[in-house]
Design a binder for these strands. Structure first.
Length: 621
DNA sequence: CTAGGGTTAG
């Protein structure tokens, strides 16, 4: 075109913005100015939005200056976009100023500033509320914004009050409140609200599903997913991501594979989120080859994807490979974030790479601009502690510029447990109980540490304290997937329909184990039962129930995949022709997952070998 | 036949 007018320029600018190329938008804006075409009231909203998308503070402010120069700052559309820009790139208070200076405001501009305060969360909700009550005309979106705001700060009761007050509601109003219920309320209540909704869309289904998954109610989540299919609601990516996350949590590999093929067949291709979830799921199921394969096939990867693989390898004891992936990540110029560093430090910790871990910690700020947070300090304490450098770990805590949280002291306590350091353990647990009086786990650990040191008076004292406070350790829980169905087991739980057979099988295995000369360790794990019951309790430890069930419910040679709820640090993988389990697991509450082949049963060796950098429990049967 | 605000996932 010889001389495109402003309308044409605006179309180009809009087109690039809509196709997620804000850089091109700005380039065209620049061209437009160079060719002396005056930007108009339509041009600026796009340009401001492009600046906001790219986080270009200076540029945005400059554009604001231009707007003032051409006397367009009175335009409602432009001002509203400026509000959004300042909210996302500068601060709500600056946005607030722009709002105050608007000569004419409409419902959208009121909602924009309200939403700005809503997204800040916390006490800013009061400001949002003031705006809301003051705005002259409240439309559907304004009501929805308020409901969302209260959901965001976790106040579902007030959210419901606003919801009830709203004169008009659409599916988004319902979905917003439903999302809040899904996050904070009992599953029964959520389902009741869901069932009573006048209409439901995929988002409604996804909210409930996501809530169930995040609350670890995996069986219900899977049933809900089945119901969704029965009612012919087509799952979208969000649905599948939730299902995959559920699979990872309980090691449901069959289901995970099914979802994977479903994704492939549906032809959507892997986006970064779905791909990452697949990588994560395969890692948590111990299928590292599949995880790597998905990773390599992904057309686009981001930092989170790399994090999933590094953490996955590390969780499975492949620390060296995790470090290699970290190097490759840097080669490919993907910027690590805080989570990456946690995964990397975790890998160092597992492999006992003390110096390497320290170096990563010391250089992460200058190399990647990541300021160490409490989690990173926790990793270093864990790293030093596991390596037996307990005093150094303690000095490290003392020198921290941040106030140590439960993760930091917990790591020290854990290390004290491994190395039987009573004195430091007392110090750590004192801090832990102060920080989180509700959690009985620390006192439980303390009781075990005293028991291992033979300090029975102290054991009794701690037990008494726990009884008085009425606190208990979080119960262990294991799950196993058989023929696509997930079976969960708690300690000494007898509600499984085949529990009779399961307990018989446990006794059978136990006989074989003691015939082979194995003696169960009774010093740890159960502090709150009498000594004579200890053996029984250990004996019925939740993963044993899961394994025993696996043994009776599958054919010989089937791999059993058992997942625990507590701790996700070390993977015990049983290798060799055959392998087995029972006490390997009871003694390692750091176990996340293990695979066994139920073919032979006899114990020959019982050595914990960590020389290869992996935890390998050799119990050849 | 040009513009702004509200819901689900790694």
């Amino acid at each position: 075109m010889p001389e495109p007018n402003s309308f044409v320029w605006n179309m180009m600018i809009r087109g690039y913005l809509r196709n997620k190329e804000p850089n091109k938008t700005l380039q065209f804006f620049e061209q437009m100015r160079l060719r002396d075409v005056k930007p108009d009231k339509f041009t600026f909203p796009f340009v401001i939005r492009a600046c906001a998308d790219l986080g270009l503070v200076k540029k945005g402010q400059w554009v604001h200056g231009q707007v003032i120069k051409v006397c367009l700052s009175v335009d409602v559309f432009i001002a509203t976009n400026l509000i959004e820009f300042y909210v996302s790139c500068v601060s709500v208070s600056v946005a607030h100023k722009v709002f105050d200076e608007m000569p004419v405001k409409d419902t959208v501009s009121w909602t924009a500033i309200m939403s700005g305060y809503v997204n800040q969360g916390g006490s800013n909700m009061e400001m949002a509320r003031n705006f809301f009550e003051e705005m002259p005309v409240k439309d559907l979106v304004a009501w929805n914004t308020m409901v969302a705001g209260y959901v965001k700060i976790g106040d579902v009761r007030v959210a419901r009050k606003v919801f009830d007050r709203a004169p008009v509601k659409d599916i988004l109003t319902y979905n917003t409140l439903l999302g809040g219920y899904a996050k904070y309320c009992e599953a029964e209540f959520v389902l009741q609200f869901f069932n009573e909704m006048p209409e439901r869309d995929v988002v409604s289904w996804n909210s409930v599903l996501g809530g169930l998954v995040q609350n670890k109610r995996i069986n219900e989540a899977m049933l809900f997913f089945n119901r969704m299919q029965m009612e012919n609601v087509k799952p979208n990516m969000v649905t599948l991501v939730s299902v995959l996350s559920a699979c990872g949590q309980v090691g449901a590999l069959d289901m995970g594979k099914w979802v994977h093929t479903y994704i492939d067949r549906s032809g959507i291709g892997l986006n970064a989120i779905v791909g990452t979830t697949l990588v994560d799921m395969y890692c948590k199921c111990g299928e590292l080859e599949s995880a790597q394969h998905v990773f390599n096939c992904m057309p686009s990867r981001d930092t989170v994807t790399w994090n999933a693989l590094i953490m996955g390898l590390s969780m499975n004891g492949k620390s060296k490979e995790a470090m290699k992936v970290f190097l490759r990540m840097q080669d490919e110029c993907v910027m690590p974030n805080e989570v990456t560093m946690i995964a990397v430090l975790c890998a160092c910790s597992h492999a006992g790479l003390v110096d390497e871990g320290r170096r990563c910690f010391d250089t992460m700020h200058q190399k990647f601009g990541i300021i160490p947070k409490l989690e990173h300090y926790g990793c270093i304490v864990d790293l030093l502690g596991r390596a037996g450098l307990l005093n150094e770990a303690y000095t490290f805590i003392e020198s921290m510029p941040l106030v140590p949280h439960t993760g930091v002291w917990g790591a020290l306590l854990n290390a004290c447990k491994i190395y039987g350091n009573v004195e430091l353990a007392e110090c750590a647990s004192k801090h832990l109980v102060e920080l989180d009086p509700q959690d009985g786990g620390y006192l439980a650990a303390m009781s075990n540490i005293y028991a291992n040191a033979g300090k029975w008076d102290n054991v009794a004292e701690v037990r008494k304290l726990m009884k008085a406070k009425g606190i208990r350790k979080l119960p262990g829980c294991s799950s196993i997937e058989i023929d696509g169905e997930i079976h969960e087991f708690g300690v000494e739980e007898k509600i499984h329909p085949r529990s009779g057979e399961i307990y018989k099988m446990i006794e059978h295995i136990s006989k074989l184990l003691s015939l082979a000369g194995h003696v169960a360790s009774t010093t740890e794990v159960f502090f709150d039962v009498e000594d004579e019951e200890k053996e029984k309790a250990l004996f019925y430890h939740s993963e044993k129930l899961a394994i025993a069930f696996g043994l009776i419910a599958t054919d010989k040679g089937t791999t059993l995949r058992v997942v625990k709820n507590l701790r996700v640090l070390v993977l015990v993988k049983i290798t060799g022709d055959a392998a087995i389990p029972m006490n390997a697991l009871a003694e390692s509450n750091a176990t996340r997952k293990f695979c066994i082949k139920p073919s032979v049963l006899a114990v020959k060796d019982n050595v914990l070998d960590r020389s290869s950098g992996e935890w390998t429990r050799k119990l050849v049967l």
